[in-house]
Amino acid sequence: MPNYFRFLALLAFKIFAAEQVDVAIMEVGLGGKYDATNVEPIVCGITSLGYDHMEILG
């Protein structure tokens, strides 16, 4: 079974495909090679990094 975040990401992608969404703005998870939100983007935006996950990311 996928964890909660992976389940929600998978559900979102399934709904986007079913609804034939042209554009979706997704926020990444914690990042990394195995992040559930890793996709091949056409356009990518980068914003400043906050300190809200320091206990997880280090």
Rank of each mutant, 00 (worst) to 15 (best):
T37R: 00
M54F: 06
F16I: 11
A36D: 06
V21L: 04
M1Y: 00
Y51K: 08
Y34K: 13
N38A: 02
S48P: 06
Q20K: 15
A24S: 07
Y51T: 14
G50R: 05
I56K: 03
G31Y: 05
F7P: 01
N3Y: 03
C44E: 09
D22W: 03
V28R: 06
Y51I: 11
G32M: 13
A24P: 00
E40Q: 09
D52T: 12
L11A: 06
Y4D: 14
I42G: 08
F13I: 05
Q20A: 14
L30K: 11
G31E: 09
N38P: 02
Y34F: 15
Y51C: 07
L10E: 10
V39K: 02
I56S: 07
L10F: 05
A36Q: 05
A18H: 10
D35F: 06
A36N: 04
G45W: 02
L8Q: 03
Y51N: 11
L11G: 00
F13W: 02
Y51F: 08
A12F: 05
E40A: 09
L49G: 10
P41F: 06
M54K: 03
A36G: 09
L49I: 15
D52N: 12
L49Y: 09
G29A: 09
A12R: 02
A18L: 12
G29W: 05
A18E: 15
V21W: 02
L11M: 00
V23G: 04
L8K: 01
Q20C: 12
P41A: 06
G45R: 01
C44Q: 09
A17T: 13
T47H: 01
A17D: 15
A18Y: 07
I46V: 15
F13T: 04
E27R: 08
K14A: 14
L30D: 13
E40M: 08
K14T: 14
A17C: 08
K14N: 12
L11R: 00
Y4G: 12
P41D: 07
V28I: 11
K33I: 14
V39P: 02
R6N: 12
Y34H: 14
F5W: 05
N38D: 06
N38M: 07
G50P: 12
I25C: 03
N3S: 10
L10I: 03
K33T: 15
D22C: 08
G50T: 15
D22E: 15
G50I: 10
V28H: 08
Y4R: 13
P41Y: 01
A17P: 06
V28F: 04
L57W: 10
T47K: 00
F13G: 05
V43D: 07
F5M: 08
I56P: 02
G45F: 05
L10M: 04
G31F: 06
R6G: 15
D22A: 14
A24L: 02
L8W: 00
Y4I: 13
A18V: 12
V39D: 00
L10S: 09
F7E: 07
I25P: 00
L8V: 06
V39T: 07
K14I: 11
M54G: 03
K33M: 14
F16A: 10
A17S: 13
L11Y: 01
F16E: 08
M54Y: 04
L10Q: 07
H53S: 13
E19L: 14
E40L: 09
C44V: 12
G45Y: 05
M1K: 05
R6H: 11
F5L: 10
L11V: 06
D22R: 10
G29C: 09
M54C: 09
